[in-house]
Design a protein around this nucleic acid. Structure first.
Length: 291
DNA sequence: CAAGCGTGGCA
DNA sequence: TTGCCAAGCTT
């Protein structure tokens, strides 16, 4: 029998009151824009790498209109090595949409948030809960894992999020706005700090005695064999990363030959794709970050 | 809708 | 060492 949602919530939220990390986008003086920036930066990127970049961004571009007016090359350089630099482009597009369509204020409606560039279901829910303190389903990789273990007895959630999973997660969210926002933050934090993917710290877990996965003796992941592994060495993705690093580091145009990638055809494909993605521009002297 | 998209740290 | 994983989104 899985634990009742009410008991699960109470335990996790009580634990969170004491265990919550002191992150800058949780500070009392945070803005909705700061929360949105943090959520985009945190997509597939660990907190420790995001924090210094977030601080620099918020000092430099404290409002959406500031980022909207920035040079894209500066934005991409400030993004640094967070990875997935197209997120930086979308964040600037997002700032421009907020400036042009919402009077420079982050919209509070879920559908309006969802319509912003780079904002999907998770991020729209996270901003709703964390920036505006309103009820939302916030189902990220941490919460998915917590629910899979505590309620379903599975080691890990399914490789792809299902409709049924969202419905189940929705059923666990309290009705009250403040309580729902608290549950979102607390359940994510539990997944990030205790109920981790690799080696969970069940000794520190507030719901260890209720967890179906633990009570079942930690059965292994059924989908382990089907999870695709990320190839890396020699991939287009690595090549793109190498190009972007070279463009960020350069003051002027970078000749194609100066990038230092062994496979010329692959380099050309990557360059063309980066230009197509508006992450680079070609000039007579070489490639540059977009203005 | 499955695939593509960066990067670095850790078990 | 190397595969796995990290607050996903877009097409």
């Amino acid at each position: 029998m899985p634990p009742s949602p009410a008991l699960l919530r109470e335990r996790v939220c009580t634990w969170f009151a004491d265990a919550a990390r002191d992150l800058p986008w949780r500070a009392p003086d945070r803005t909705p824009w700061g929360v949105l920036v943090s959520e985009v930066m945190l997509q597939q990127t660990p907190v420790v790498r995001v924090e210094p970049v977030w601080r620099e961004w918020m000092d430099r571009w404290p409002r959406p209109a500031d980022l909207a007016a920035a040079a894209t090359a500066d934005v991409l350089r400030a993004w640094g090595r967070l990875g997935y630099p197209r997120r930086a482009l979308r964040l600037q597009d997002c700032a421009r949409a907020i400036t042009d369509l919402h009077d420079g204020e982050v919209p509070q409606g879920f559908d309006e948030l969802l319509a912003l560039p780079g904002v999907g279901a998770y991020t729209a829910g996270a901003v709703t809960a964390f920036a505006f303190g309103r009820r939302a389903v916030v189902l990220d990789t941490n919460v998915r894992r917590v629910l899979a273990r505590a309620l379903d007895g599975d080691a890990l959630p399914h490789p792809h999020q299902t409709v049924g999973e969202v419905r189940r997660a929705e059923a666990v969210v309290p009705g009250d706005d403040a309580e729902a926002a608290g549950w979102a933050a607390a359940s994510m934090e539990l997944g990030a700090l205790v109920c981790t993917a690799r080696s969970p710290r069940c000794g520190e877990c507030p719901v260890a005695d209720l967890c179906v996965w633990r009570l079942a003796g930690f059965p292994a992941d059924e989908h382990a064999a089907r999870r695709r592994t990320q190839a890396w060495a020699g991939t287009d993705r690595q090549c793109r990363g190498r190009v972007m690093a070279a463009l960020r580091a350069a003051d002027g145009p970078v000749p194609r030959e100066a990038i230092g990638w062994p496979d010329a055809a692959q380099l050309d494909r990557a360059l063309a794709a980066l230009v197509e993605d508006h992450l680079a521009e070609q000039t007579a002297e070489g490639y540059v970050l977009p203005r």
